[in-house]
């Protein structure tokens, strides 16, 4: 499939934005509740992972090009091209996340500045996911030009991002169980919603049936995590794997269906 790199790019970028929003919420919550300092350490680490994911995503998207070295020319048509806008938002988001990370680690900048940078990054990130969807909303490609495309991109963000953070919470040594419980509960709820939304979006074919089974398994894992009242992040780590597989299959179907053949 020619579009393998785009598949990787869209999944990684949507994961990164979703993770950033989740980490931002986590940071806010930690700040408001004046909770454990380990949470804030986790946030610092997570920001670096988000920046790394975005760097990988940008590399992946550049691989799709015939002339990757000239990739940054792609911002030259902001006037009409959603791809230009996507590239600008992608670069802005990555830079702002990196900046936020540096500011936090160095301790420089007031909390107002940090908040401002974080808000700007979040806006760019959400804008990025929206722009990515608009890239495919081409009036001449009816197979892609549906609300389902936009919905699918945002649901991917809501599934992969928070679950990636949950996997980090579960697998990272930084946090105590107690500190992680509330975040894990919240993520489990959001993810359950995400899995349900994906199942509701529907589809056809053998691959869809397989995907449906994986989504259902993910939903069950979220339920189990809820039942464990956030005590075990392992369920959510497994749910992340399920979400990755399901969204991978779904995105693969999206690109294989493709724009259809012209004429």
């Amino acid at each position: 499939m020619k579009e393998r790199s785009l598949l990787a790019f869209t999944l990684l970028a949507q994961l990164a934005v979703g993770a950033f929003v989740t980490v931002g919420a986590l940071g806010l919550w930690a700040g408001i509740t004046e909770g454990e300092p380990t949470v804030l350490l986790f946030v610092d680490g997570a920001l670096l992972w988000v920046a790394l994911a975005m760097a990988l995503a940008m590399l992946a998207s550049a691989f799709h090009l015939g002339a990757p070295a000239s990739a940054l020319r792609a911002v030259r048509n902001l006037r009409t091209s959603w791809l230009s806008r996507e590239v600008l938002l992608m670069v802005s988001f990555t830079v702002l996340v990196g900046l936020l990370s540096i500011l936090r680690r160095s301790g420089a900048g007031s909390s107002a500045l940090l908040a401002g940078v974080a808000a700007a990054a979040g806006t760019c990130g959400l804008g990025l996911v929206y722009a990515m969807a608009r890239v495919y909303r081409i009036r001449t490609v009816p197979r892609w030009d549906t609300v389902r495309t936009t919905a699918s991109f945002f649901v991917t963000m809501l599934l992969l991002g928070p679950l990636a953070v949950a996997a980090g919470l579960a697998l990272g040594p930084d946090l105590t169980q107690a500190a992680a419980r509330a975040p894990l509960l919240a993520i489990a709820l959001v993810a359950a919603g995400g899995f349900s939304a994906e199942i509701a979006l529907g589809g056809r074919g053998v691959l869809h049936t397989v995907r449906g089974a994986i989504l259902f398994a993910g939903l069950v894992l979220c339920a189990l995590s809820l039942l464990a009242a956030g005590r075990s992040g392992a369920f959510l780590a497994a749910a992340f794997a399920a979400a990755l597989a399901a969204q991978g299959i779904g995105r693969y179907q999206f690109y294989v269906v493709g724009p259809g053949r012209p004429l």
């Binding site: 090009l65 015939g66 002339a67 020319r73 792609a74 890239v135 081409i138 490609v141 012209p262």
Partner: peptide, 16 residues
């Protein structure tokens, strides 16, 4: 100027 992103090929309904 072209960077070979193929977006135009996706969009063009005539395969141009």
């Amino acid at each position: 100027t072209c960077i070979g992103c193929r977006y135009c090929a996706w969009a063009c309904p005539y395969g141009t």
